[in-house]
Design a protein around this nucleic acid. Structure first.
Length: 655
RNA sequence: GCUGCCAUAGCUCAGUGGUAGAGCACCUCCUUGGUAAGGAGGAGGUCGUGGGUUCAAGUCCCACUGGCAGCUCCA
């Protein structure tokens, strides 16, 4: 006698097991028509046609672009349609695995001939046929034995089936797209939408290689990516977002705006051009100021350190293949991939008292990591980079307060770049396996981090098992202007590295005894290179004034205004403003066009009238004409806007 | 690192086995102008590198390097 509780708290009672569809019908026929599945107890998504025989809470899932559960169902089902289409067009195709993912779904399979982009149109046409036929997804359940028999000779599906059984399932389910025995079927746990007709807004996106179970030594499969939305509108919006991402690509804008380049013979290391470096330095100066205000002390430690030190820190044993090494007079050295060992050595100079703690040591640490070539990506993932790194040496009792104050500093910083708390996603990564340390200290550590986030007035979710082997960590992900997430900030509790067995960082406690401190590894921007890449994409190269590489360009109308134009530029430069004069001969229209394309924030026109009156005619990057104003007023306005770190009008408010 | 795709002028790209092209940028000259392109001329290339097929290779084949996408990785 299932008692079913609806999201609004209403309870429906049924005399016998019911299907999701029957529940929907009981609520209303309109809803039943729109329903594509149900979610039980907020955890289990099920087919509409499956019977429910227990008490539960239930949500009817309808096809909506903003409901992750709906997208899950649609995409999982679309993966079947894709696979069926490929099987039809490429006989002999072996199916492996086809789950929904963040932006859509994929299907891993092995085809007799390689699938290429030129096949997409045919695959999509076939998919549309299947969708138009509006065939039902029919769940067929078999006993373990019968199910296994059905996968006989099919390496991948057999393996999937065995894994499902090993996991504890006692039956195996297949989904038929249509009529059992006649139409295409696939071993699949489900769930699926009621019929293929729901999958109108599907598209094949790309093709890539993948390995069976992600194992490089295993079979190479073809992974075909697709996506699916509730309707055309959702699909179009998605395709538009992809176009947006292309337009904002930092590699493209970096070239276009002359910010940096990477040499073909030196992959993974950035050559910063004057304009890019101007932003970089601004970022660094800004963080330096923030750190001072938050009681950090800036230091600088060596880039190359002896193997002896890396052995003590454990990096030589555990991180070797990611380090660039060198040698001198028969001794091995490594370029630092991290700053923590150096900071501990620095901490250990002189005797530290409990009165010195917490001690916050910051460094714009230039690190090199020998990343695999395939991982490199523009300036986002490089082999040489600088972190806004700092280590907080403290006692276990001080951890919570330190983490809370870090959270406050971090939200202030992010807000200055236009990421308000609604654009920060916080995860608490908890104890992994394997790990070191006893359960009680993990309990305390995880609790301290969680409480600290709350104390800072923020919310977090748990990321189970994702902590470092030595301690839990918080990870801060920024959501950019087009909704993409970028993990930047982090704070990790580490009792290991400063511990007795590693670098042994101690202080004299109140009772005169020596105690080991714990340390917090923390960064807000992460890698400056990567953060700048994120900013380029977030702002589409149209930086807020305080960050912009060229803040003001002065446009004289003719050579006669060159002297006053240069004088105004010199005045601005002396005040720390990044200002230039367009010295080219040419018409004003051309100069305005170039200034806008170069994403200069403000351009100040000086013609005969302005020169005489000591004014400028002002326009901004967006093309808004801001009128004619006295030069004094203009200068004051620029300085005020830099000081206020005003964000571009288009970036204010959340998306 | 693995798989697939890609590599032509500073940039964006065309060139489908038979004499290397366009637009923009650059240089020179003319033009001194009022808010998104004034005009004329010029220079610019070992077609990523190395091998092979061919009478002939930017074009076809192989390897390497780099880039892109995905995988994997990110103690």
């Amino acid at each position: 006698m299932p008692r079913i509780t609806l999201p609004d708290g209403k309870v429906l009672e049924f005399p016998q097991p019911v299907t999701g569809r029957q529940v929907a019908e009981a609520i209303g026929p309109g809803l039943a028509k729109k329903a594509i599945g149900v979610k039980l107890d907020d955890t289990e998504i099920r087919d509409l046609a499956r019977a429910i025989d227990r008490d539960c809470t239930l949500k009817i899932i309808t096809a909506k672009n903003d409901d992750p559960d709906a997208l899950y169902l649609l995409r999982h089902s679309a993966a079947h349609v894709l696979a069926e289409a490929i099987c039809a067009l490429h006989p002999g195709t072996k199916l492996a695995y086809g789950p929904p993912v963040d932006e859509g779904f994929f299907y891993d399979l092995r085809t007799p001939e390689p699938i290429r982009e030129e096949h997409f149109a045919a695959i999509e046409a076939k998919m549309q046929e299947i969708v138009a036929a509006d065939r039902p997804f029919v769940r067929c359940e078999f006993s373990a034995q019968e199910g296994l028999a059905r996968t006989e000779g099919d390496k991948y599906k057999r393996d999937n089936a065995e894994r499902a059984l090993a996991k504890g399932d006692d039956t195996l389910s297949f989904y038929v797209s249509g009529e059992p025995g006649r139409d295409w079927e696939d071993l699949c746990a489900g769930p699926h939408v009621p019929s293929t007709g729901w999958l109108k807004a599907s598209k094949v996106m790309s093709v890539a290689g993948a390995y069976w179970h992600g194992d490089q030594s295993s079979d190479q499969l073809t992974r075909v990516y697709g996506t699916c939305f509730a309707d055309d509108k959702g699909l179009k919006a998605h395709l538009h977002r992809i176009e947006e991402a292309k337009r904002r690509n930092h590699r493209k804008l970096g070239k276009e705006m002359d910010l940096f380049h990477v040499e073909e013979d030196n992959p993974g290391q950035v050559f910063w051009h004057p304009r890019g470096w101007a932003i970089y330095v601004t970022l660094m100066d800004y963080m330096r100021r923030k750190q001072v205000l938050n009681d950090y002390q800036e230091v600088h430690t060596p880039s190359v350190m002896s193997r002896v030190l890396w052995e003590k820190s454990g990096h030589w044993q555990n991180y070797r293949e990611n380090m660039f090494t060198t040698e001198s007079e028969k001794r091995d050295f490594a370029i630092k991939p991290m700053n923590c060992p150096g900071h501990i050595l620095l901490f250990k100079q002189g005797l530290k008292s409990y009165r010195d703690l917490p001690l916050r040591i910051a460094e714009f640490g230039s690190c090199c990591r020998n990343e695999p070539s395939g991982a490199l990506h523009g300036i986002m993932r490089v082999r040489g980079f600088v972190q806004d790194d700092a280590h907080i040496f403290c006692t276990e009792d001080q951890v919570e307060a330190e983490v809370a104050s870090f959270c406050r500093m971090l939200t202030e910083v992010y807000a200055d770049f236009g990421f308000g708390t609604d654009r920060i996603d916080i995860k608490l990564a908890t104890r992994p396996t394997p790990r070191i340390g006893d359960e009680a200290s993990w309990d305390r550590a995880e609790k301290a981090l969680g409480e600290a986030v709350k104390a800072a007035g923020l919310q977090y979710t748990i990321s189970p098992g994702e902590g470092a082997f030595y301690g839990p960590k918080l990870e801060f992900t920024l959501v950019d202007a087009i909704g993409r997430g970028w993990q930047c900030g982090t704070i990790q509790l580490d009792p290991n590295l400063p511990g007795k067995d590693r670098l042994d960082a101690t202080y004299v406690a109140e009772d005169g005894s020596r105690k080991n401190c714990v340390m917090l590894h923390r960064a807000i921007l992460g890698s400056l290179e990567r953060f700048l890449g994120i900013l380029i994409e977030h702002f589409e190269g149209k930086f807020p004034l305080w960050l912009a590489p060229e803040q003001v360009r002065i446009l004289p109308i003719s050579d006669d205004q060159m002297p006053p134009a240069r004088a105004l530029k010199d005045r601005l430069v002396a005040l720390g403003v990044r200002a230039t004069v367009d010295e080219q001969a040419g018409q004003l229209g051309a100069k305005v066009r170039e200034a806008r394309l170069a994403r200069v924030n403000y351009f100040a026109v000086i013609g005969g009238k302005e020169a005489e009156a000591g004014t400028v005619a002002l326009q901004n990057q967006a093309g808004e004409k801001l009128g004619t104003l006295p030069q004094d007023e203009f200068v004051a306005r620029i300085l005020a806007e830099i000081e206020a770190k005003t964000l571009p009008a288009s970036m204010i408010g959340s998306a």
